[in-house]
């Protein structure tokens, strides 16, 4: 950078700070603004992360250390004993596996059904289509809790109470309206019909055109609805506690909830915290794994 421009900079900083490069660009640029932004961000982060930190910290402490008054901000006696012992009091791995199974199955089921339904609604005109769309939207207007009793009795009469199948169907059903609407919009905006037509002419059937052309370029949309359903199911407590609350089959949310309900969170507090930390990891991994598909712009360049 030449001397002229460096000299020139300070005068212009006020206006420049908004331009590309933002804060990094302006050397002298409102230090105060910068400081305020940083402080606010840090405060917000602390506010959000403090409980998480407390959980992680507690899981590496002994019970006595946790209960010390005034509380210790960091483990005075660092130990991983809680992680080694937690399975004696709470079958957390089993619960996690249950949750993964239920959430993944629901995610796959609702993505599969959702993309087929969305494709038909996006591409074909048929009598009653508007009615279908309105009905799908209308389901979103009903507060979920009002469905609790009807759904419970429906699942009960189907003989699916306390089975994985029952809750998988329920979760997939809850997410489907959103999945269908999101994917329909995705297909309509990002997949020009010319693409399928080209595929048909190239020798595809309707189904293989969908499978080989439309689905691959819709990966971002599919990833979004898969994550959505997975996390919804993973985080759910209400439905799982209604539909699947027996012994070993519990999901992680219900398992941990029941354990603390039985007083486990007081007696075995460090093990309880260790179990909680463990329970947060799979969703994190799932998110990191799928988020690379959440890139946009896959269809760029297909039509003029």
């Amino acid at each position: 950078m030449t001397t002229t421009t460096t000299e020139h900079m300070p005068r212009a900083t006020g206006r420049r700070s908004g331009r590309k490069g933002g804060f990094a660009r302006s050397r002298n640029a409102d230090r105060l603004t910068r400081a305020i932004v940083i402080v606010v961000t840090v405060l917000a982060l602390v506010y959000i992360l403090l409980p998480v930190y407390w959980m992680v910290k507690s899981s590496f402490q002994t019970n006595a250390d946790i209960r010390a008054l005034p509380p210790h901000w960091y483990p005075h006696e660092f130990t991983i004993q809680a992680y080694l012992d937690m399975t004696y009091v709470i079958p957390i791995w089993r619960y996690i596996l249950n949750s993964i199974y239920v959430a993944a199955a629901a995610a796959i089921l609702s993505t599969l059904i959702g993309c087929s339904a969305a494709y038909v609604l996006a591409r074909f005109r048929f009598p009653g289509m508007t009615l279908c769309l309105v009905a799908i939207l209308a389901t979103q207007l009903i507060p979920p809790i009002t469905r609790a009793f009807p759904l419970y009795s429906a699942i009960q009469s189907a003989g699916l109470l306390n089975s994985y199948t029952g809750i998988i169907i329920a979760y997939a059903g809850f997410s489907l309206p959103f999945c269908v609407m999101l994917l329909r919009g995705y297909f309509m905006n990002n997949c020009p019909p010319d693409l399928e037509e080209a595929a048909l002419v190239d020798g595809c059937s309707y189904f293989s055109a969908f499978w080989r052309i439309i689905l691959p370029i819709s990966l971002p949309g599919l990833a979004a609805v898969t994550i959505f359903t997975f996390l919804n199911a993973w985080n759910d407590f209400l439905w799982a506690s209604l539909l699947l609350n027996q012994g070993d089959m519990k999901t992680v949310q219900v398992g941990i909830g029941d354990f603390s309900g039985e007083g486990g969170n007081v007696r075995y507090i460090s093990m309880f915290m260790a179990a909680c930390v463990t329970a947060t990891i799979p969703a994190l991994i799932m998110f990191l794994f799928v988020q690379r598909w959440l890139v946009s712009g896959l269809t760029a360049g297909s039509v003029k």
Binding site: P192, L195, C204, S302
Partner: peptide
């Protein structure tokens, strides 16, 4: 169906497969 007709077509909009 188009594939039974054994034709090749160039579209006005190209319709290339983006992936």
């Amino acid at each position: 169906m188009p594939r039974q007709r054994d034709i090749a077509m160039v579209f006005q909009s190209y319709a290339l497969y983006p992936h």
